[in-house]
């Protein structure tokens, strides 16, 4: 997409990938962004961030790109209007929606750095209006660079300059994973109060592992691309340029009967107190 042209023809600024609460409050005040709540609609109706629109995750999973574009139009999102997305599930659902919007061509999409619970704990403004927005136009420009499918992953797993990142928790990873995948559990990427650690910390974790930040990264998780969606944004925020999401993730991989790496020589599940 030609961002230069967009910037020159539009008043909306490009917002950071991860927005802090101050930025979001300013955007709300100036009515210069669409805030999107991806929790269930009944949760939205109870209360949500002031001026937010409702877009439950379930509405976008399995939808074709044209359907996603239709949703954006109905939410009054033009090609350049900043969109900030939040959830109450440690950022994973928000990340999956945000990735989808970026994929269909809405690059000016970011994540709120806190969950809705944290927003409320901080005493920031909420409301319960069922907000509606006048319909606008939005073009579709599929961003193939951020998406990977099974056949792409199949090739990538053997390629030296590509890292396959499994975002599931450690015990799931040990049990089985795509061959050569590196495990970076989503739990590693968050901090006590924010959905993601600071970019420099994420960078340090990557560098500790001897992984080059110039390489291509492909994230995946168990099924719907939520945990790996969060990892997608974590890696992007840490300054890694080339990140892709394998959105159909390990569930599809297994359904396709593709080869897995398993580890059966230890009974690690029995160490869990859950």
């Amino acid at each position: 997409m030609n961002t230069k042209k967009l910037q020159s023809t539009n008043s909306h600024a490009k917002i950071p990938l991860i927005c802090n609460t101050d930025t979001v409050q300013a955007l709300i005040l100036n009515n210069s962004a669409r805030i999107v709540d991806v929790r269930k609609s009944e949760e939205y109706l109870q209360s949500h961030i002031r001026s937010a629109a409702s877009l439950p995750l379930s509405q976008i999973l399995e939808k074709e790109p044209s359907g996603i574009i239709e949703i954006l139009k109905n939410l009054g999102v033009t090609d350049t209007l900043p969109v900030v997305i939040y959830d109450d599930t440690f950022g994973a659902l928000a990340a999956r929606v945000a990735w989808t919007l970026q994929y269909v061509g809405h690059s000016n999409t970011s994540l709120l750095e806190v969950t809705y619970s944290q927003w409320k704990r901080m005493g920031l403004e909420t409301e319960s209006n069922n907000n509606k927005f006048p319909k606008v136009e939005h073009a579709m420009r599929i961003n193939h660079k951020i998406q990977a499918d099974a056949s792409y992953v199949d090739l990538a797993k053997e390629q030296e300059n590509k890292f396959l990142v499994d975002s599931r928790e450690r015990l799931n990873f040990l049990t089985e994973h795509i061959p050569n995948a590196k495990n970076i559990p989503y739990t590693m990427l968050r901090s006590d109060n924010n959905i993601l650690r600071k970019p420099e910390e994420i960078r340090r974790l990557i560098e500790n592992r001897g992984m080059s930040t110039d390489s291509e990264y492909i994230t995946y998780c168990g099924s719907a691309g939520t945990l790996s969606g969060l990892a997608f944004f974590a890696l992007k925020s840490a300054g890694i340029k080339n990140v892709k999401l394998y959105s159909k993730s390990f569930r599809e991989w297994k359904l396709l009967g593709k080869v897995k790496e398993e580890f059966k020589d230890a009974n690690y599940w029995d160490l869990s107190a859950d």
Partner: peptide
């Protein structure tokens, strides 16, 4: 607790 979630298996021993 936090370290076990981030880097281990979510339980400590």
């Amino acid at each position: 607790a936090s370290l076990s979630e981030a880097f281990s298996i979510g339980s400590a021993h």
